[in-house]
Amino acid sequence: MSAHEGRFEMQITTITANNVKIARIRSTEILITDVQSVLDLIGTVGYETLCERILLDKAAIAEEFFNLRSGLAGAVSQKFINYRVKVAIVGDFSIYESKSLQDFIRESNEGKDLFFLPDEQQAADRLSKV
């Protein structure tokens, strides 16, 4: 187990959509703040659920992620891809005015690895089909 786990109030459950098992993460704290935190999350989810698909709330991700200049979104995305983990982030992304971020979200949603969706049902459905 990672050294970071003690500070997280995180609950991992599994849901099934179209016969595909998905790890549903709920947290009262920000879980993704840097590359190491992503690796910790991937490891914890894999160990506890054996899932390769993760659904989490936007609130579990540091706001810095949504500022593309920080580089966090690219680094986080790359780790998920490298470890073959599909992720859907649920929340309201219309609040961001950055055209580059909106382009990133649109391009991600057209791909097969990282999705930004408005609700849990759409997220589970998308994850079950990739």
Rank of each mutant, 00 (worst) to 15 (best):
F65R: 06
S94R: 00
F66D: 05
A88G: 10
L68D: 05
A73K: 06
S70D: 09
Q78A: 15
S77I: 05
I89C: 01
N67S: 12
A75L: 14
A73G: 08
I81E: 13
F93E: 02
D92G: 00
A75T: 14
V90A: 03
R84V: 10
V87T: 07
G71L: 09
A75N: 14
L68A: 07
I95G: 01
G74H: 07
I89D: 02
N67W: 05
N82R: 11
V87I: 08
K79Y: 12
N82E: 14
N67D: 10
R84E: 12
L72M: 13
V76I: 12
V90L: 00
I95P: 00
F80N: 05
S70A: 12
R69V: 14
G91L: 09
Y83A: 14
I95H: 04
S94M: 08
R84G: 06
I81C: 07
N67M: 09
Q78M: 15
Y96I: 02
I95D: 04
L72W: 09
Y96H: 06
R69I: 14
F93Q: 00
R69A: 14
G71F: 09
S70H: 00
I81T: 11
K86H: 04
I81Y: 13
I81S: 07
A75Q: 13
S94G: 04
G74S: 08
